[in-house]
Design a protein around this nucleic acid. Structure first.
Length: 374
DNA sequence: TAATCGTGGTC
DNA sequence: TGACCAAGATT
């Protein structure tokens, strides 16, 4: 791609900052100058909407107010606060990074993008965001909003995931950020993408860059940026069993890698596309948990769509004899607990939906269930 | 480079 | 209603 003229890039600085000063949203982390609080907000905002993040950020900062408290916390406590936010590796990485900050950086976050990027879970974007917003460094950043704004303003009509284009976008961001108020400049770019320069029906009439926008001149803003199509989620099937033993049910913890890593769920497992689910229950509970059960009752079915998986989960009830022991194969933990207690452990959407189907609810899960049902 | 990794909102 | 998308990182 041909890089825009330097002067053309620099020209959008002033109108962008003016617009930001007049229209910036009042977000809770914008009241903080604490690098730790800003870092947490950036980790949560990865692929996650602002409105979703706000209550999680507030609860997280209350539970873990500083780097030291996060480094000392049990992963279980962190997961519990993170439950429902998704991309759980972020929670794991936050703790690992906090430990490294305490052990190797005297308890203070590194101030440069290079230093920040050595920490787990901090990539190129987050390094630039924290360096510029928390430490006033002239560090560039490119997120989905910035890709869209640059593609339109500078008329970039090639696949935005191509390496050459990605590097071009970072170069533009770097040229643009040099100067006063780098943190505000970066936030202004993202804010413009979030509020006006939206994927569909951008509000070009209100845009501070409308006189300078290539896509507006050519009337193809809505078709930019150019991206390739994403793969459809693959279907997978699984079973989950509400297995009761003397008034308690079995909860099991998934391995620390892969889908829903480290989260608690009902025992069960994946089945084949043509399996009769009921026929696999006894076998799976035996093979994965060393359990023998009798009397399997079908409860129903839930569906859950992940980014790359479309899960169909069949839910059953069964009982285990008093004194039944568990021998885990792949899972890394298990507990016999009151049904409602599973809702207080870190768990993901499918487990929440299965418990809801089973009539196990509390106020929090009921609200989440209400949201996901629209 | 292309997959993997959650969830909820929007049209 | 399925497809797209949201302040990405990791492998």
């Amino acid at each position: 791609m041909k890089l825009p003229e330097r002067s053309r890039i620099r020209r959008i600085r002033a109108p962008l900052l003016r617009w930001y000063d007049a229209h910036r949203r009042d977000l809770p982390w914008r009241h903080s100058r604490d690098p730790y609080a800003i870092w947490i907000s950036e980790a949560m905002l990865q692929q996650t909407r602002v409105e979703t993040v706000i209550p999680y950020w507030e609860r997280f900062l209350e539970a873990f107010p500083d780097v030291g408290s996060l480094a000392r916390a049990d992963l279980d406590q962190i997961y519990a606060v993170w439950t429902g936010l998704g991309y759980y590796s972020r929670a794991r990485n936050l703790k690992a990074a906090a430990e490294s900050i305490v052990a190797d950086h005297g308890g203070q976050l590194p101030e440069t993008p290079e230093g920040l990027a050595t920490l787990k879970g901090i990539g190129r974007y987050t390094a630039g965001a924290v360096a510029s917003i928390a430490f006033d460094r002239e560090a560039p950043l490119v997120d989905g909003n910035v890709v869209r704004v640059f593609s339109r303003v500078f008329g970039i009509r090639e696949d935005s995931s191509r390496k050459e284009i990605v590097e071009g976008l970072w170069t533009i961001a770097d040229i643009l950020v040099r100067g006063p108020r780098p943190g505000d400049l970066n936030q202004a770019l993202m804010e413009l993408g979030a509020i006006l320069c939206t994927p569909r029906k951008p509000d070009c009439g209100a845009c501070p860059l409308r006189r300078d926008c290539d896509a507006l001149a050519r009337d193809d803003a809505e078709s930019l940026p150019v991206k390739k199509k994403k793969a459809k989620p693959r279907r997978m099937r699984a079973i989950a069993v509400h297995l009761e033993r003397e008034g308690r049910i079995l909860a099991v913890r998934r391995p620390e890698e892969g889908l829903m890593a480290g989260l608690w769920e009902l025992p069960g497992g994946e089945i084949g596309p043509d399996d009769e689910a009921r026929d696999r229950v006894c076998e799976l509970l035996g093979a994965s948990f060393g359990l023998q059960v009798r009397g399997v009752e079908s409860v129903g079915r839930i569906e859950h769509v992940f980014t790359h998986r479309h899960l169909e989960l069949e839910v059953f009830r069964s009982r285990a004899e008093p004194g039944t022991r568990v021998r885990r194969r792949d899972h890394v933990g298990h507990r016999w607990i009151r049904p409602q207690a599973l809702l207080a452990l870190a768990h993901a959407g499918p487990t929440r939906k299965a418990l809801n189907l089973l009539g196990v609810t509390n106020e929090v899960s009921a609200r989440a269930e209400g949201r996901s049902r629209r």
